[in-house]
Design a binder for these strands. Sequence first.
DNA 1: CTGCATGTTAGGTT
DNA 2: CAACCTAACATGCA
Length: 281
Amino acid sequence: MPELPEVETIVRRLRSYLIDQKIEAVQVVTPKILRIPPRRFVEALTGSIIRKIRRKGKMILIDLDSGSTVALHLKMTGQLLMDPQVIPGDPHTHLVFHLSPQGSQMRYRDVRKFGFFDLLSGHPGETPACPIQVGPDPFEISFKRFYSFLNSRKRAIKSLLLDQSVISGLGNIYVDESLFQSRIHPLIKAGDLSEDQARVLFRNIKQILSRAIRLQGSTLKDYRKPDGKSGRFQNCFQVYGRTGEPCRACGSPIQKIRVGGRGTHYCAVCQKVFGPVSLKT
DNA sequence: CTGCATGTTAGGTT
DNA sequence: CAACCTAACATGCA
């Protein structure tokens, strides 16, 4: 499930394949993947040259020389695969881009079809802003700003960190890992964190994301780099997907609970809820 | 077979 | 506005 490290890895790889390539042709196999009429999409892309590839939160933005930008989101199972990885007759391939002069192909694959492509129109020389409402990612803000996001919020810290309109890039895996690393219980209200706790959390979020980028993301099932290969950060998980297994810090079994409708992994011994605790007598 | 869990965002309601 | 709920979808599992 592509979160910031996976999307960043994909973007870096795509740059080496796509920059200055011309989109010779686009095949739309599954129109529902597009947020605009297929005809308009094909017309806007055909003959354009790819100039820049950017990431905004978990979105991928591909700037064309025409001034337009292709904006896409992989959601849960979307993949961008280059040529040799193409599976002939694959039922889950929805878009095919033909590139020149390289002569290569890039395909969009998505088993669940949650992902989407949009087209942002702009003027040549300008870079269109991101279409959807996404807050800054953890690398784009200061601690002060991060702390102000938590301030006086009543929702669980886990839910807040997952809210892309507040802070972008984090998903279920990296939130659970960051909270564990910071010894913070996922249900603590965001506004109840001390400044020291928030500082530790902020540092750990960035450290874990950086490490995950270095290992080229986490592959559970669907995430692949454009060359079809897996990431390696899944081998570093401390809590995610380790329900019942011993905590690497204290040995007690990792718990799984539901927070804001999301499966949440944590260590009940290392990540304590503190402050006023109501006890039944 | 049924029913549930999976992760992400949009869009709705409270 | 903040917080919460559910739909969209395919697949694997108990």
